[in-house]
Amino acid sequence: MDKPINNKAWLFVLPVLVLVAFSAVIPLMTVVNYSFQDTFGNNQFFWAGLEWYREVLSSERFHNALWRQFLFTGIILAIQIPLGVAVALAMPRKGWGVPVCLVLMALPLLIPWNVVGTIWQIFGRVDIGLLGYTLFNLGIDYNYTQDPLDAWITVVVMDVWHWTSLVVLLCYAGLVSIPDAYYQAAKIDGASRWAVFRYIQLPKMHRVLLIAILLRFMDSFMIYTEPFVVTGGGPGSATSFLSIDLVKMAIGQFDVGPAAAMSIIYFLIILALSYVFYTVMTNAGRER
């Protein structure tokens, strides 16, 4: 039976539309306006046309930041999703271990982003940090302030530490919703551990995995605070991701026009990739 359509429902959506207009649409319109103009402050603007877009698109600095951003997001997803699924599978389903594991998993998510950055900035220091000092005494030449590879490893490990819990909790929610009857049927059929995962657990986790991948993709693509606190985008510009580069341009250099053009391009990339991710994964789910 078809669901009845009641157009009065749109009235209930109106408050949200107003809120979104104030928090997202009007700022976005302003950024579009800025991206076609130049300003020296004092609310005075001069028409620049497509100049800032042309400048950003041909800028090596933007290309490098974009490449670093894709690399970072790819690494993050490649580590956090399998690791999150593995940890969720290993967590107990009943008993006292459940609340203990849940609290432990939730802890990193409760810490503010700048505090996470500060924790890892101190943790990695060779003179006073546990990690840096230990690695130094093991004879490993680790210095995230001077070595680009060390900076990358620190930022990636920090993000994995901070956000894998989210994937774990989402996957765990999917796993505990699977009725025992599925496992009993698999046991009767003599299914292997892998078969249970492939044909029962993974399909049941599909929707939460979709949410986890989308959230982690968008969050990691917009990452700013943690790497800014730990490395400040350095050494050099080794960890200057798109958002860090954008803030440097907009606030550090007060190049509002180019920064606005870069923001629009950045926004379009996120929008397109999120749409592709969402469409591919929801349709894969429907086919299954």
Binding site: M29, V32, N33, Y34, F36, Q37
Partner: peptide
């Protein structure tokens, strides 16, 4: 609305 830095081309676009 001067802080929004409106121009005719962007206004037409929206």
């Amino acid at each position: 609305l001067s802080w929004m830095a409106w121009t005719w081309p962007t206004a037409i676009f929206f």
